[in-house]
Write a protein that binds this DNA or RNA. Structure first.
Lengths: 174, 174
DNA sequence: ACTGAAAATAATCTATC
DNA sequence: GATAGATTATTTTCAGT
């Protein structure tokens, strides 16, 4: 259950996740202790999953973004290979999809040699049958933001659809 | 230019972007003021782009992840329509790609009705010729983390590839 | 669920090396 | 670049409502 106050807090955090508690309190018009309690509850419910930093891949030399579709031979519905693919550090996103290809991945690499190396890693995973690489010419939008005006405040709850099938490693969320 | 100390700082932030400065300082073995200065420099250089919160879309009722390929009729190399697509709030990612389709998008919606509405919005943009929607059955991995061991510390610089072509709205980064 | 007060920490600035 | 020290601000806990 999230209410209008939670929505305000989450919208503030979506703009800048490193903003101080005290500043959120000021903007929401509540005591900092109350904000702190709400944030912890949102974390406990799994609505807040993580605070992340977005680094500029190009500024770090990872100038190529690639989208790779992967076809595998697994028993229907199995995502074993997906978890193997998710372990590869160049791979930022792995989706198990309905359709001809089983997975779609996004990866960042420094150059075509690094891309070749990455594809070689895929090929080394048993069951990977085919890959189809698409070069990204322009990362036009990349955002974690959700439009909270689209979420039904009444039915938004903490139980369903939590961390299942997420291979991110954990660490203290605060 | 990032060095080994920056790398340590960034790796700590990649695990939890809301960690205190003082705690980073403790882990790195430096004075907090020095860490603060380095973080500000990383922000100024555009290496740190944003601090984001990852909310659980499913916990908020946005249970469907969809990948949509969009074919457009634009003059070659133009990404005008990409920016239009990026304005739509359900759309979290927009990539301009080499290949048969011009764009690949990722979007979150609550149900198939919301998906229909989203596709209708695409159709309303002049120049959008065709869309191909793929349903995501499992979001296996979604992460912003970059493997800093893959970045060449020597050549990683602040000049190239900064915010160009990014339609995220800005706000005080701290 | 929230507030307000108190104690503990942290952020930030200046001066200095 | 970094630190140490001073000041201001924030975080956190908790008693009270």
């Amino acid at each position: 259950m999230i209410d209008e106050v939670d929505k305000k807090i989450l919208n503030i955090l979506q703009k800048n996740a490193r903003i101080s508690n005290a500043e959120i309190a000021r903007r929401v018009g509540m005591a900092p202790s109350g904000i702190l309690e709400r944030m912890r509850k949102l974390e406990r419910k799994g609505i807040i999953q993580k605070y992340e930093v977005r680094l500029n891949p190009k500024a770090l030399g990872l100038v190529l973004t690639v989208l790779i579709m992967v076809k595998t031979e697994e028993r229907v519905g199995s995502v074993e290979i997906g978890y193997e693919l998710a372990k590869i550090s160049e791979v930022q996103e792995v989706y198990f999809t309905a359709g001809e290809y089983n997975y779609l991945l996004k990866a960042r690499v420094s150059d075509t040699d690094a891309l070749t190396e990455l594809l070689r890693k895929f090929g080394a995973i048993p069951g990977v049958k085919d890959t189809r690489t698409t070069l990204v010419l322009n990362d036009i939008k990349e955002s974690l933001a959700l439009d909270l005006d689209r979420v039904d405040v009444a039915r938004a709850g903490g139980k369903k659809g939590a961390r299942k099938g997420n291979s991110q490693e954990s660490e203290d969320i605060s």
